[in-house]
Simulated scan of single mutants.
Amino acid sequence: MTDADQSQDNSTDPTGGATARSVLVTGGSRGIGRAIAERFAAAGHRVATTSRSGEAPAGVLGVRCDITDAGQVEAAFTQIEEAHGPVEVLVANAGITKDTLVLRMTDEDWQQVIDTNLTGSFRVAKRAVRPMIRGRFGRIIFISSVVGLLGSAGQVNYAASKAGLLGMARSLAREVGSRGITANVIAPGFIETDMTAELADDLVAGYKKQIPLGRLGATEDVTAAVEFLAGDAAGYITGAQIPVDGGLGMGH
């Protein structure tokens, strides 16, 4: 079938005639990462997720991988490339927290968060870039946090790791933009997930008072932004940070 034929008949094409891509979502077994993987799979893309534990969504290739281990990252990419071809859309979502006040924060608390959230994101982006350069197409999307903009007591390590993603994305945007590769950041605010469901009601109420829209976000708010940045319509957007936070981080 020719490209023209495909554009005329999209009735059975879940991508709506758009190019089906090879997509990797790190940390895709739960929460926002899982929702992102499900959205891409529903749109007809070839989707893989990595995680240290947990199961991938239905129809998604799940690969065990600790992104703090360079050998595991290489093995994961090799497995994904054999199944789906080179990764064309990378969503670097995997992250952890080790929250405590700075006077109690150990070097290990600091290092584990930086190694996963920042160095791990660097590692998967570096591995994805070379095939993207050869293919002259790529979308790299880092999942940051409003905390990286605002700061948060007890999260010095987490805030630093998430803030660093913007510098990484903008440097990548300058390095590889001429090869058709974009690098952007999405900074979610307080999103309703299994983790936020465990928070006390009074704490959630306090968060809502700080948010101009007066509510927590839904995973769909984040996945819609990710899908947009991954698509053809966002081909002229790079080095950007898009807040999905109900206005909480305005001005930062």
Rank of each mutant, 00 (worst) to 15 (best):
A48R: 04
A48C: 07
S51H: 02
S53A: 11
S53T: 15
S53F: 03
G54T: 01
E55D: 14
P57R: 05
G59I: 12
V60K: 10
L61I: 08
G62T: 02
V63K: 11
R64F: 10
R64K: 12
C65R: 05
A70G: 04
A70I: 11
G71S: 06
Q72H: 03
Q72R: 04
Q72G: 06
V73F: 03
A75K: 11
A76M: 11
I80C: 01
A83G: 04
H84E: 01
H84W: 02
V87E: 08
E88S: 05
A92F: 00
A94H: 07
A94T: 05
I96M: 01
D99Y: 01
L101C: 11
V102S: 15
L103P: 07
D107I: 07
D107S: 14
Q112L: 06
Q112K: 13
Q112W: 00
V113H: 11
I114M: 14
T116N: 06
T119H: 08
S121L: 04
F122A: 09
R123L: 13
V124Q: 09
V129K: 00
P131Q: 03
M132L: 04
R134N: 15
R134L: 15
G135F: 00
G135S: 14
F137T: 10
F137R: 03
R139F: 13
R139M: 10
I140Q: 08
I141Y: 08
I141S: 06
S145H: 02
G148N: 04
G148K: 10
L150C: 03
L150H: 00
G154M: 05
Q155E: 13
N157C: 05
Y158F: 13
